[in-house]
């Protein structure tokens, strides 16, 4: 990965104690209660983001993950200057985002999977030209950047059709092009693959990885598709209930937060009843038993001993020890918390 001359500089993005509290009106049911709340509105405080800290080097690709309502989008909106934090500080590319200085806005871009920056009724090329002027991109640079993006995203055929006639995936290609025309240093992506089919997801992932390599653009991405995060982000930041729960490698997340291993055993005999198994250590359980395939969820520390015992007592055709699938880890964290 390209890490352009940043070794001695401070990180491109620095976030300290960033907090956002919303004041949400409480609207009770019923007419009389509604009238009462009109006269004496009541509010409750909801903390969407609660004192998070992290820093990101230039050229990195970081996944911001967490369940719905965890505070991911609020964090992105604060970093892109759309929201004022309630407390804490952040600097991105030397600017305080929510001051919305034009110089800052020219260095960033934000793509929201559910919002469009394209003009709906005209072909993408015309929208791109408007954006090129809005960002004051010199003509020759504009042409070069546009050609590169069109080439990487294979979108030559889309340029002449009105945007409203494009498919969701084609539109997302346009959004990405539109967001990169002014060569931002930081790209915020909020659910960029939302609602896209598998092959379009793959193509966009490939594009993002390649563009990040080529241009060294720093990318922060939120996604509910773990495949996006697995494919793109060496580092993830997990937010839950507005708090930073984990910051590090995605693989490390499973190790740290899921203190168990999955033992997948293919037996040579056909069907086994759970009673026929040797006694399992405390904390281990049968995750699945289908035909001759047995899956056990075993505490990390018990895994080696149990594996040895199973090999002795059962007729084993094949045995693998794996970390649990990332989706399962995430589900466990989202539902049980990550204590």
């Amino acid at each position: 990965m390209i890490q352009p001359q940043t070794t001695k500089q401070s990180p491109l993005i620095q976030v300290q104690n960033l907090t956002k509290t919303y004041r949400v009106p409480i609207r009770p049911e019923g007419l009389s209660a509604s009238v009462k709340s009109l006269l004496h509105p009541q509010y409750s405080q909801v903390t969407a983001v609660n004192g998070i800290n992290f820093s990101i080097e230039a050229g990195a690709m970081v996944g911001l993950i967490g369940p719905n309502g965890a505070g991911k989008t609020t964090t992105l909106k604060m970093l892109s200057g759309l929201l004022h934090p309630s407390a804490g500080t952040a600097t991105v590319a030397g600017h305080i985002p929510w001051q919305r200085h034009p110089d800052y806005l020219r260095r960033i871009s934000m793509v929201m999977g559910n919002k469009s920056q394209m003009l709906w009724d005209i072909p993408p090329l015309d929208s791109f030209r408007v954006l090129g002027e809005v960002y004051a991109v010199p003509g020759a640079d504009f042409r070069r950047t546009l050609d590169e993006l069109i080439d990487l995203l294979e979108m030559q055929d889309l340029l002449a059709k009105p945007v409203r006639n494009l498919s969701l995936g084609e539109r997302m290609k346009c959004e990405l092009t539109a967001s990169l025309l002014h060569r931002p240093a930081v790209l915020f992506l909020d659910e960029p693959t939302l609602g896209l089919d598998v092959s379009m997801q793959l193509r966009l992932r490939r594009f993002l990885a390649e563009y990040n390599q080529r241009r060294g653009v720093t990318i922060i991405l939120t996604s509910h598709y773990m495949a996006d995060v697995l494919a793109l982000c060496p580092r993830v930041i997990l937010i839950h209930h507005g708090q930073l729960v984990y910051d590090g490698e995605l693989n490390g997340l499973a190790r740290k937060l899921a203190p168990f291993k999955m033992l997948r055993i293919v037996l040579s005999s056909e069907v086994v009843a759970p009673e026929d198994l040797p006694p399992l250590p405390a904390g281990a359980e049968v995750a699945a038993l289908e035909g001759n395939i047995l899956t056990l969820r075993v505490p990390r520390a018990e895994a080696p001993a149990l594996t040895a015992r199973l090999l002795q007592t059962l007729a084993v055709a094949d045995l693998t020890v794996e970390d649990p699938p990332i989706e399962a880890v995430m589900d466990q964290i989202y539902t049980e918390g990550a204590a």
Binding site: L119, S127, V130, E133, V134
Partner: peptide, 19 residues
């Protein structure tokens, strides 16, 4: 000014769809 004209141009193009 250039960005203003560009925005105007984009609007004209959009509106031409709805003469």
């Amino acid at each position: 000014m250039r960005s203003g004209f560009a925005l105007m141009r984009g609007l004209w193009l959009s509106w031409l769809q709805y003469r």
